[in-house]
Simulated assay, not measured.
Amino acid sequence: MRSPDELAARTDRASRAATEAARELGLTVTAPRTIYDVFSVVVALDPAPVIARVPTVLPRSVTPAQQERFQRNELAVTRWLAERGEPTVVPSPLVPAEPVRRDGFGITFWELIEGVTEPALETGPRLALTARLHSLLREYPGELRFLEPMDGFMDDALAQLADRPDLLAPEDLDRARREWAIVEPVIASEDAFLAEFPDATIQPVHGDAPYYNLIETPGRVYFSDFEHVTRAPVEWDLVSIGDEGVAAYDAEAARLGLRPVDPRVLRFMESVRNLQVVGCLALAPELPLLVEGLKPVLEHWRATEPAGGLGK
């Protein structure tokens, strides 16, 4: 596990890389401030109205080329939404809208949103906004891969966890391997998925809880954090929303001409997401807070039906 001093040094390196890259791009940065530090270090590049995001904790399976593709996809999707007048965090217009590689970090630069408030939206409005986002994204013309965040991730994560019984108990590892053997062939491609779920629709989706990744201001609510934008069924974005959330989403989906949530697809997507969380334990040496933070999710996973009941 990384020590507190090692974590602080990594944060400093990321902040320094973002600041130096920004200056090379012509921004005036005199007082950079780290405003967030978990999987990414987020730096306010004062006095420039620009935010830098520097991913620091990535799965070992993510290559620099794949990370760049993720970042280019995010930049492209957010710019496309903004061009249509949709409220979304957008790439900073003060620098080129492309990732920058500096000191081993992949860095993107974003426009500062002023007047951010504490989250206040209730479940209903959050899920209504998610349905609206899906209605917009189904028209997105850019090329995205199917469930790319899972590509190569689980095999490598489970291989790492095989040597870390302190992070994942052997009986849990055995269950995860058996469950992944059922899940992996289904999500190997869009065709494989549709063969199992022929009524599902595959489209561009946010990729990581869009109902949670909202930025609120007194006048607007902004979509944010499209780091894992991908092609998938909409249920990939709706894991763990509960019955109230499903009802709120379905009501807005009906108004927008979208299909309602498919309970069978949702159960399966929840099983895939649970496995992803299990795999995230492999990141704990780089992010020790995951050990305690993921315990409730692991308890929930142990109580669920493997693979969402698939393969029975």
Rank of each mutant, 00 (worst) to 15 (best):
G152V: 08
F146N: 06
H134S: 05
A176R: 01
E171W: 10
Q160I: 10
P125D: 12
A169E: 11
M150A: 12
R177G: 00
R178K: 11
P170C: 07
L161C: 01
G152M: 12
D174T: 08
W180F: 02
L161Y: 01
P170I: 06
D156K: 01
E179Q: 07
A128L: 07
G142Y: 11
L129F: 11
A159M: 05
R138I: 15
A162H: 09
L133V: 12
P125F: 14
D174F: 08
P170H: 06
D166H: 08
P125H: 14
A176K: 02
L173T: 01
Y140S: 01
R138T: 14
R164Q: 08
D151Y: 12
M154L: 15
A157Q: 04
L147E: 04
Q160P: 04
T130D: 05
L167H: 11
L147G: 06
D172P: 00
L173E: 03
D163I: 04
R126A: 05
L167T: 06
L173Q: 07
R177P: 01
M150D: 12
E139F: 14
L173I: 12
D155F: 05
R178N: 00
G152R: 06
L127C: 09
G142E: 08
D163M: 08
R138K: 15
A157G: 02
L167Y: 11
L127N: 03
A169G: 06
L167S: 06
